[in-house]
Design a protein around this nucleic acid. Structure first.
Length: 871
RNA sequence: GGGAGCAUAGCUCAGCUGGUUUAGAGCAUCUGCCUUACAAGCAGAGGGUCCGCGGUUCGAACCCGUGUGCUCCCA
């Protein structure tokens, strides 16, 4: 069979993905096996695949594929999130392009556009995950606004309302003036922002005096309803209880005292604007101040402000500053940097605003969720996130769950014209409920216009994808729940992870997952977070096309320990592609032997075969343990090095027959077996190339994708050590050849001075092949005209046609001698320390004694060599 | 302002219970090789004040304190 020069990823990816699908390997139905379940964090329905998804889903696929190969019934559930704000924003933008404004549409009209958009573009991301090789059970694809899921969200709202956990309340919220909706605290991004601090004069009633106020928001002065000073501030004690006038509009406001004020910030006097600042609001409530809202929903100035009505807030900031300056009220401005909140979705400055919203009381519902993580009923990897989690859960605030949007789950509250309301699953139930609660029959009710926060639906994800709430105790929920592993970004630990845990305990009476693996954040080479605005996010599909899905998976996994950010570097993908090529070439080599087998003497290769078999067992066990600890990056590195170094660089070279010579059939078959096992180990990480090679190695109807791992046995330590000795000896002697500037084709004669003659005899044939020696013999004394080297405790004399470079050799030996003597000194220092001998554990003591003996032997051997050199 | 974390080779990171040959790997670098699987390769080599200072200990990259620098979260 003629093989291509390089592995061609594109045809292999297409062929194997559709083959796996055809065989329904990813499909899971409950059976007698132990389940292994992962629910995918649902991406936004309008999203496209980016680096974060790539990392996250590669990790999940590795875990799922490995589980599938170890006897588990693996079930990985895909799906998408309706993402109310993000999706609605996209639909609004799309409509704007067509010349349609949202306000000109009815709710139903808008929603039909939104659904049309969702059907057209929704779920592109799921198709992209197939390119990456993700082994998802596609029949289970869920969407947070599927009919059944939608109904469950509504029912849960009603249930929580009836339990008294959901309430309606006027609170200070974060208002997005562009999206025209409330935002939860988590949706607000704080950024250091350069601002100006304006110092303004407020005149004091009945005097010619004035008080100076420093503010970054002069456009809100029309909403001022007090001035506050610190009660102990000597500068202002005479003003307590007096009144001042708001500049420009001359409204009379009291001067109050409260120790909330920081005396040494600005002038020490604070303007209190309860409608537009959370702290001022609290202060206002304490002192019973009036609340004057000077903004409209969209961030323009309202009638209540009296001036600048209808103008945009930041425009007004500039204009009012000019007016205040002209009128002599603005004393000075300073540069000032502070943190300002921006909307995560629209990136506009968030306006604190008093608003009537729906709230979920978090205190009771959160306590089992906190306990479960603290007591490791749910384990976090890495565990440092436990602290973060605890800190948030212990200071948890009520959750604002209403959003002024249409795309989402509409709040099931029904109002009459007088503002009386009931909460019910549907209109008919509401009418009945209204009669019960308010004594009014056949009331004319209108449903709340608002939607629920997206996370109020996705917190049900781990059980509702199995209909655990809508069809309690069904076969699937009983089998798959609690799920096994959640793989997610630490950014959404509060948004989503914490709330899923709460919902799990509240509605399933059990945790939603056993363990959470937090991935890192993908950053670019300079350590910047990848984002659209920076344009530093590479086109993932282009990368997959170029390097292949396996190489992409390799590149993103090779340097990404759990919870650490990963610096994305395209050269890692290149390394992955080179790895593919390496494996491919190993296959080509073996394929060359396919038709060139004979019943020759296999003794020469027996050591290689025994050694590699043991090495394979050793690494299999290591990988298993790393996988259990979620050390995926290290596991991949280990497999990489097993294949590249141990298999290709050592094993294959050791068994390789001479030019055009046949290979022993038994050795050949053994090698095919080893290669197969290597591909199996690699498969979870790089599924396509491994499946392709598996099928090319030998004709089979089985697929690697579902091949079960055999149990690794404990390796033979002496054999492994012998392998190590062989490797070290070969490297050491190759170094001698290099230093002697011997060409590969120039052969040498080798004399070994050792106490372990039998060991070297058993590896002699491999050794001679690897260092191109025409003769290997043993000696008990110095060999004349040779280049001497000491490897471990053994001495090697290399005889070649080249003249021996004594000076070079001498300096090498001296360097080694200095090192050893220094080393011996530290060991002796320890051993001569009485306290060490008394306190150290016996095995440590023994080790030190062995170190000393070894070093002394080596020193002796080197000194002898040096003495011989002088002669 | 409050809290958490990080600092080890040029880069990315291991180093898990303090002792495992005076610190390991991959990538990059350098030297030599187009050796009949692979130049996307082979063989070999060099490269370190384990951030600074102080302490605990027979013994510290690891534990404690402190300083510096960076990152993240919360207000």
């Amino acid at each position: 069979m003629e093989l291509n020069k390089n592995f061609e990823h594109q045809p292999a990816e297409q062929k194997w993905y559709s083959h796996w699908m055809h065989k329904q390997y990813f499909k899971s139905i409950p059976d007698g096996r132990e389940p292994y379940t992962i629910v995918m964090p649902p991406p936004n329905v309008t999203g496209v695949l980016h680096m974060g998804h790539c990392l996250n889903n590669t990790i999940q696929d590795i875990l799922v594929r490995r589980a599938r190969m170890t006897g588990k019934n693996a079930c990985w559930v895909p799906g998408t999130d309706h993402a109310s704000i993000a999706t609605e924003a996209k639909v609004v933008a799309m409509l704007r392009e067509r010349g349609i404004t949202k306000s000109s549409l009815s709710r139903d009209e808008f929603l039909s556009y939104a659904w049309e958009w969702k059907e057209k573009y929704g779920g592109i991301i799921l198709q992209q995950l197939k390119k990456l090789g993700c082994s998802l059970d596609w029949d289970r694809t869920s969407f947070t606004m599927d009919k059944g899921y939608y109904d469950s969200v509504i029912k849960i709202f009603v249930s929580l309302y009836n339990k008294g956990v959901i309430y309606r309340g006027k609170r200070m919220i974060n208002w997005d003036v562009k999206a025209l909706t409330a935002l939860s605290d988590e949706e607000v991004i704080r950024k250091e922002t350069r601002q100006k601090l304006y110092h303004l004069k407020y005149s004091i009633e009945g005097t010619k005096d004035f008080i100076i106020i420093a503010t970054v928001r002069p456009e809100t002065i029309m909403g001022d309803t007090a001035i506050c000073v610190h009660p102990e501030d000597e500068r202002y004690k005479h003003l307590h209880g007096k009144f001042a006038f708001v500049p420009l509009i001359n409204r009379r406001i009291p001067i109050i005292a409260d120790d909330y004020v920081t005396m040494d910030f600005g002038s020490g006097a604070l303007k209190v604007t309860p409608a537009h600042d959370i702290n001022d609001y609290t202060l206002g409530q304490k002192h019973h101040l009036e609340v004057i809202d000077v903004f409209n929903d969209n961030g323009t100035i309202s009638e209540a402000a009296q001036i600048y009505v209808g103008m945009e807030r930041f425009e007004v900031r500039k204009k009012i500053a000019i007016e205040l300056e002209e009128k002599g009220i603005l004393l000075k401005t300073e540069e000032y940097t502070s943190e300002v909140g921006y909307s995560e979705r629209t990136d506009v400055v968030v306006e604190p605003r008093l608003s009537l919203q729906w709230w979920l009381s978090m205190k009771d519902i959160s306590s089992p969720a906190l306990k479960a993580v603290m007591e490791e009923e749910i384990k976090f990897y890495p565990s440092k996130f436990k602290n973060v989690y605890r800190h948030w859960m212990e200071n948890i605030k009520d959750w604002c769950i209403s959003r002024q949007l249409w795309w989402g789950h509409r709040i099931p509250a029904w109002f009459d014209i007088n503002g009386k309301f009931v909460v019910a699953e549907n209109e008919a139930a509401a009418v009945a409920q209204f009669e019960k609660e308010h004594g009014i029959t056949n009331a004319n009710l209108k449903q709340d216009e608002d939607c629920l926060d997206t996370w109020f639906s996705s917190w049900l994800w781990p059980f509702e994808v199995f209909k655990g709430y809508s069809q309690p105790n069904n076969e699937e929920i009983k089998y798959y729940y609690p799920t096994n592993t959640l793989v997610t970004a630490p950014e959404i630990i509060f948004f989503w992870v914490a709330r899923m845990i709460m919902a799990g305990f509240e509605y399933m009476d059990a945790k939603p997952f056993q363990e959470v693996y937090f991935t890192g954040i993908v950053r670019d080479k300079q350590g910047r977070k990848m984002s659209k605005s920076l344009g530093n996010s590479p086109d993932l599909l282009a990368l997959i096309d170029l390097y292949g899905a396996d190489a992409t998976r390799f590149g993103i996994m090779i340097a990404s320990p759990a919870g650490n950010d990963i610096l994305f570097d395209e050269s890692a993908l290149e390394q992955g592609r080179n790895f593919n090529n390496k494996i491919w070439n190993a296959l080509k080599l073996i394929k060359m032997w396919e038709g060139r087998q004979a019943e020759t003497d296999a003794d020469e290769s027996s050591f290689a075969i025994d050694w590699f078999g043991n090495r394979l067992n050793e690494v299999s066990l290591e990988v298993e343990s790393m996988m259990q600890q979620f050390r995926l990056s290290e596991a991949l590195k280990t497999v990489y090095s097993l294949i590249w170094d141990d298999f290709c660089s050592w094993y294959l070279e050791w068994i390789k027959p001479g030019f055009e010579q046949p290979i022993n059939t038994a050795v050949y078959n053994k090698t095919i077996g080893y290669f197969t096992e290597l591909m199996q180990l690699l498969h979870p990480f790089m599924p396509f190339v491994s499946e392709e090679i598996y099928h090319l190695l030998q004709e089979t109807n089985e697929d690697l994708c579902v091949r079960q791992f055999k149990t690794a046995i404990t390796p033979d330590k002496t054999l492994l050590e012998k392998g190590l000795l062989l490797k070290n000896t070969i490297s050491g002697l190759r170094d001698v050849r290099n230093k002697q500037q011997l060409k590969p084709k120039e052969s040498i004669r080798l004399f070994i001075q050792t106490e372990n003659k039998e060991v070297f005899q058993s590896i002699e044939s491999i050794l001679s092949k690897q260092i191109n020696a025409i003769l290997i013999d043993f000696t008990s004394e110095n060999v004349a005209n040779s280049f001497t080297t000491v490897i471990g405790k053994d001495k090697f004399y290399v005889v070649s046609e080249q003249p021996v470079d004594t000076a070079n050799q001498k300096s090498d030996l001296e360097k080694e001698l200095t090192h050893l003597k220094g080393f011996l000194l530290t060991v002796e220092k320890k051993l001569n320390n009485e306290k060490f001998v008394q306190n150290a554990k016996p095995e440590v003591l023994g080790m030190e004694q062995k170190k000393k003996a070894d070093a002394e032997t080596k020193i002796k051997v080197i000194e002898e060599s040096l003495a011989n050199l002088v002669n």
